[in-house]
C-alpha cells in the first residue's frame, strides 16, 4: 500500500473541509432564500435568467459556491470511503482529486450558463 499522506496534509485537508463547511452554510442559506423569493415572486425561468445574465455578483457568488462544494465533498467522501470500505492510499486520493476536478468543471459550466 502507498505511504499515507503526511500528518500535515491530512490536517490541512481537515481544516479545508471545516472552512468550506462554514462557507457552504452561508452559501446554502443565501441560495435557499433566493429560491424562495424567486418562487414567491412568481418568476419564470426566463425571467430568472434575465436577472442573472451578466450579473457579476451572481457569477462570483455561485462560482465560490462551486469551489466550496468541490473542496468539501471530496474530502468528506474520502473519509467516508476510508471508514466504510477497504479502499485507502494513493488510488483513493487520486479518485477524490478527480472528483473535485469534476465538481469544479461541471459546477462552473452550470454557473457559466446562468451568466452568459
Amino acid at each position: 500500500m502507498a505511504r499515507p499522506l503526511a500528518p500535515r496534509i491530512e490536517t490541512l485537508l481537515w481544516t479545508a473541509q471545516r472552512a468550506s463547511a462554514a462557507a457552504l452554510g452561508l452559501c446554502v442559506a443565501v441560495h435557499l432564500v433566493t429560491i424562495v423569493l424567486a418562487v414567491r415572486g412568481g418568476l419564470s425561468a426566463a425571467e430568472i435568467l434575465a436577472r442573472t445574465r451578466g450579473g457579476i455578483t451572481w457569477l462570483l457568488f455561485y462560482g465560490l459556491f462551486v469551489v466550496a462544494v468541490a473542496i468539501h465533498a471530496p474530502i468528506g467522501l474520502r473519509s467516508i470511503l476510508r471508514e466504510t470500505t477497504a479502499w485507502r492510499g494513493r488510488s483513493l486520493d487520486l479518485a477524490c482529486g478527480l472528483f473535485a476536478l469534476a465538481l469544479v468543471v461541471f459546477g462552473w459550466r452550470a454557473v457559466g450558463g446562468l451568466f452568459r
Binding site: P4, L5, P7, R8, E10, T11, W14, S79, E83
Partner: peptide
C-alpha cells in the same frame, strides 16, 4: 506528539 495524533488514525477521524 501533534504529528502523532493528526490524521486518519488520529483526532481527525
Amino acid at each position: 506528539r501533534l504529528a502523532a495524533v493528526a490524521g486518519d488514525a488520529g483526532c481527525h477521524a
